[in-house]
Design a protein around this nucleic acid. Structure first.
Length: 652
DNA sequence: AGCACGCCGACT
DNA sequence: GTCGGCGTGCTC
């Protein structure tokens, strides 16, 4: 008898002999097997009588034997899930095993920290929760029935505000708590765990367990221990928590389901939201996606009736008051040689006098870029070629990528001209303009603060009326802190590939959470005529989704087409590598698959300075995966390269 | 992951 | 010359 064993290494499963004394239920057990010159822990995936034809072909003679056999780690459904992960994301199964907290489980199971008999189903306490006998809300009732009877169903709750989103989740948890047997609550970023976990701790006490990638090794091990022993069965965490080794999962919730943070950008490049749905399907759990601005794919899945849209009878999306949105034409502002619109500053003055708060949002720290007006050269870093940022206060040009600091040049390095001007706007420049506009106002500079929005909490105690927020893509919203917001760089969101409009729309919806309902949001753009602003202004979700889906359909983008990107990193022989890749893609011309490239793209890798990209597209996911498998297999023939595969990329 | 092997730069 | 650094490839 033989067994295929997977190790938590970047390695496909390997075949080993099963010793005579082995128990019959070997599949899913942790075993120790020799690999190179050491013993490694691995997972038994399947067993069979004779080695496969493929192995005979390879002429593999001395198959080594399994050495030690331990307890079970994976159930049949977990193994199915692992195999699916590996196939779907085109990664060796070892990488998928790693994601499933295999190493932590091994250290617990093999060191007899827990024996199988220690693992118990503890009696669930409800902490004196009152359950309404009759649930009037039909939707809560459906969810509860699903959780109770363990059937798979996905729901989308399109929430009118973050407050609604949170309270809906709590309602579900309260109403269904007697029947919840294993649950995972996902949030996009670590800081969002805290708020929810407080509320959930009240409901579930010690059953609750926090799981995210920034936990120390020991803390993580402790969390996995609680989950494996069954003493915790309610997990709240970031995307990796979707892999929590729960025995049963009756409910999975994905908060802020549209967030790009659910996408892993290295290793197994999974999307936590998609995995939640797949895992829910395999484990027969109810999956609740929720968001104030759901992604286009999720809305499309609702239209296909794959997911059930909740709250559509409430008309709540239109009933709540939201801040007004005004569009500012950048052209008229720049004509006056300014970054900030005088009209907006008048509004800011009102707010200042009323002792309220105004938020300026810009995605650049420092003053501006520098441009030579004679030849249009933008000053760039010699090392990494990214644009240098002029910091007026420190009087330097700084590269935010590689931390290079340089003096301000007197003349252009390209044309030797002396006509160097600032280009664009960063937080320093906004502060300067505010100070000059409000120069009559006593000690105005003390009323202005500049911060990365994720650090907002730190500055709350001495909050200033004018806040200049940078890096707002890592946003930290607090409800209705501001009377107005002014988003200067909305156009930069319109460069994100096929997700551009969606990201811009979502960004404004997120900002609207930070502004008072009777407040106002200003959006400054070079393209005020762009259709997107009509949808944004009116909070017209349906109009936006219809329009966006039509565009995606027309241009063969997701959700109508599936995309796989293969990045090939090289450091030398680039023309030869490029040529080899060309030959491979030419050889794999499959019906129904579009292959774009290979084309050279910028590399962000330090040692592999060149990157060649292949983009594959198809409306048929199976065919696309097959095509990608063939290409990846053939790429193994090229030496000295590194291959990265991104299935369902968000950025293209 | 960890080990062998091979290719380059630095140096008694 | 050779020592040793790291980068690359392989493991049933």
């Amino acid at each position: 008898m033989y067994a295929n064993i997977a190790f938590s290494l970047k390695l496909q499963p390997l075949t080993y002999k099963i010793p005579d004394y082995a128990p019959p239920d070997l599949i899913g057990r942790i075993v120790q097997a020799p690999l190179s010159n050491r013993l490694y822990y691995g997972l038994v995936l399947d067993t069979f009588k004779t080695p496969s034809l493929e192995m005979n072909r390879k002429g593999l003679k001395n198959i080594r034997a399994i050495q030690n056999i331990y307890h079970h780690f994976a159930s049949e459904s977990t193994i199915k899930f692992l195999k699916w992960l590996s196939k779907y994301y085109l990664m060796p199964i070892g990488i998928a095993i790693k994601s499933l907290f295999f190493d932590e489980a091994v250290s617990l199971i093999t060191k007899n920290v827990l024996l199988e008999k220690n693992v118990t189903d503890i009696k669930r306490k409800n902490n004196g929760l009152k359950i309404e006998k009759e649930i009037r809300n039909i939707e809560l009732h459906t969810i509860r029935e699903g959780i109770k009877n363990r059937f798979y169903k996905s729901f989308l709750y399109h929430a009118p505000s973050i407050l609604y989103e949170h309270s809906f989740l709590l309602k579900v948890l309260k109403h269904s708590s007697p029947d919840i047997n294993g649950a995972i609550i996902l949030v996009p970023e670590i800081w969002q765990i805290e708020k929810l976990s407080h509320m959930m701790r009240d409901l579930f006490g010690e059953r609750l367990c926090i799981l995210h990638s920034k936990l120390s090794k020991n803390k993580r091990r402790e969390a996995i221990k609680k989950i494996i022993t069954g003493s915790s069965d309610l997990i709240i965490g970031t995307r990796s928590a979707v892999f929590a080794p729960l025995k049963n999962i009756s409910f999975i919730s994905v908060m802020n389901e549209h967030s790009p943070s659910y996408k892993a950008e290295e290793g197994l490049r999974y999307n936590g939201r998609d995995i939640a749905v797949m895992r829910g399907y395999m484990e027969r759990s109810v999956v609740l996606l929720s968001s104030i601005c759901p992604s286009v794919e999720t809305i499309y899945n609702c239209k296909l009736k794959k997911y059930t849209l909740l709250g559509k009878n409430e008309k709540h999306l239109h009933e709540i008051n939201r801040p007004k949105i005004k569009i500012i034409d950048t052209k008229f502002v720049k004509q006056k040689g300014l970054s900030l619109s005088p009209d907006v500053l008048k509004k800011a003055q009102e707010i200042l006098l009323k002792d309220e708060r105004f938020l300026f949002l810009v995605n650049r720290k420092g003053y501006s870029l520098l441009i030579c007006e004679d030849c249009d050269y933008i000053f760039r870093c010699n090392k990494c070629h990214s644009a240098l940022i002029f910091h007026k206060r420190d009087n330097v040009m700084r590269c935010h990528h590689c931390n290079y600091d340089g003096y301000i040049p007197i003349s252009c390095s390209e044309c030797k001209g002396f006509n160097i001007k600032p280009l664009g706007t960063g937080d320093e420049r906004i502060k300067e303009e505010l100070e000059s506009f409000f120069s009559a106002y006593p000690s105005i500079s003390e009323k202005i603060t500049s911060t990365e929005l994720r650090d907002m909490d730190k500055i709350i105690p001495d909050f200033k009326p004018f806040v200049i927020g940078t890096r707002h893509y890592t946003k930290k919203y607090r409800d209705e802190l501001f009377s107005a917001a002014y988003l200067l760089n909305i156009d930069s969101f319109l460069t994100y590939g096929f997700k551009a409009y969606e990201r811009a729309f979502q960004e404004v919806m997120q900002i609207s959470q930070m502004v008072k309902k009777e407040g106002v949001i200003f959006l400054q753009t070079w393209n005020p005529k762009n259709k997107i602003f009509r949808f944004i202004k009116n909070y017209d979700f349906n109009g936006f989704y219809e329009h966006e889906l039509a565009l995606r359909r027309e241009f063969n983008y997701p959700p109508f087409f599936k995309i796989i990107i293969i990045n090939i990193f090289a450091k030398k022989d680039v023309p030869k590598v490029l040529n080899d890749i060309h030959e491979i893609t030419r050889g794999v011309q499959l019906y129904d698959i579009e292959i774009l490239g290979p084309v050279e793209v910028p590399s962000n890798n330090k040692s592999y300075t060149k990157c060649i990209q292949i983009l594959m597209k198809s409306r048929d996911s199976k065919k696309l995966h097959y095509g990608a498998e063939v290409i990846i297999d053939r790429l193994k023939g090229i030496k000295n390269i590194k291959v990265n595969i991104d299935v369902d990329p968000l950025k293209i």
